[in-house]
Computed example of a mutant assay.
Amino acid sequence: MFPFGEDIEETEPHDNDGSAREQLLIVLDDLTGDREKVEADFLASLPELKKVLLKDAEFILESDPAATELIEVLAVYPGFFAIFCYRIAHSLAGSGVPLLPRMITEFAHRETGIDIHPGARIGSPFSIDHGTGIVIGETTEIGKNVKLYQGVTLGALSVNKGKASSKRHPTIGDNVILYAGSTILGGETVVGRNSIIGGNVWLTESVAPFSVVYHKSQIVVRNNNDFRESGSFII
């Protein structure tokens, strides 16, 4: 989809002599009763999918001071790879394909440590930096221009099987930044647009747009002459 050494903006998806289409049909054979429609819909979606992924990659490039060029993001960034796999899986899941979407996102999970359920709804552009340990649950909704850092969890308040068909995961508005280690839980939890959630924050209730939520560590300065080991710590 992103052939290196060519004009990324102008290049059309390659057919590779039909091999991609043939492989897709083989995979779909045992997974869906209407494989030709699913195949046609998916292949027709590729040009738009490519545009969305390029927006994601450009957003990552703009957001990360360590990124030097677009090809670097496309080729080596684990956050982009996880987003790439998610968007393909989400497209297939939307066409009613079982199992395969989870196989794709679990492959990305294994390779990157980033766990995005294909059922999640994520706007574009979207940025994941570093990424290890990120979890995005099935009914999560994420707006546009959202940035996530490593260790973020967008999860459910419980693992009650009876709630499988309900909204269990949070909603994140546009232009939100979620810093490392923040945990946001619950289907009714909404992070309003343009908010910043600081590192290691534990959040189970909604916050208004333009909020800044942070965890303040307790710092105790002790006399060096009175230092001794203690089994009691405040974390």
Rank of each mutant, 00 (worst) to 15 (best):
A120W: 10
T204L: 08
I134F: 10
K167C: 05
I177A: 04
I134Q: 02
S165E: 08
G155Y: 03
I234W: 15
D17C: 13
H169W: 01
T68D: 09
D226G: 07
E205L: 01
Q23Y: 05
L70V: 07
L154N: 03
K147L: 03
A66D: 04
A44G: 06
F81K: 10
V176G: 09
T132W: 11
P78H: 13
F227N: 12
G143F: 14
G181T: 08
L24F: 07
G186M: 06
G119W: 13
N194C: 07
V201S: 01
L46H: 01
V190I: 04
A57T: 15
N160Y: 10
A20Y: 03
G155Q: 06
I235N: 12
Y86D: 02
A66C: 05
N194Q: 00
N160G: 04
A156L: 10
I234A: 14
T68G: 11
V146N: 04
D34Y: 02
G186L: 07
V221D: 15
E9Y: 06
S63L: 15
C85N: 05
P209Q: 12
I177H: 12
E229N: 12
N194Y: 07
I83T: 01
S91F: 00
F84M: 07
F126M: 13
K161A: 14
F227S: 13
G131Q: 12
K144M: 00
E72R: 05
T153D: 06
S124C: 15
N160F: 09
V76N: 03
G96M: 04
L185K: 13
T204F: 08
Y179P: 03
R21A: 08
E58G: 13
D56E: 02
D34F: 10
R102N: 00
P78F: 05
S45K: 09
L148G: 04
H14W: 13
A40E: 07
P125N: 06
P170N: 03
M1Y: 02
A89N: 01
V213S: 13
L148E: 15
E39F: 11
K167T: 06
I136Q: 12
R121I: 01
E205C: 00
G33I: 08
T189C: 12
L74H: 02
L25F: 06
F2M: 04
G79K: 00
F84Q: 07
E36W: 00
G187P: 09
A208H: 11
F233K: 10
Y179T: 09
T189G: 08
G18M: 07
E205I: 02
N224Y: 14
I235P: 10
D64M: 04
N194W: 05
E111I: 01
D56F: 00
N225V: 09
P101T: 03
R110C: 14
E36F: 14
A67N: 08
N200S: 09
H90I: 07
H117S: 13
P125E: 06
A208S: 12
S91Y: 01
N145P: 02
A44D: 04
V213K: 11
T112M: 14
F42M: 03
S230R: 10
A82W: 07
T11G: 00
R121H: 15
L185W: 13
G187V: 04
G181K: 10
V38T: 05
V191I: 15
I142A: 05
E58A: 13
R102W: 04
I88P: 01
E10P: 03
I235G: 15
T132V: 05
V220D: 13
S206L: 01
I88D: 00
V97I: 04
T32H: 02
T189R: 06
S124W: 03
K51G: 13
V135M: 10
S165Q: 03
V212S: 11
S211I: 05
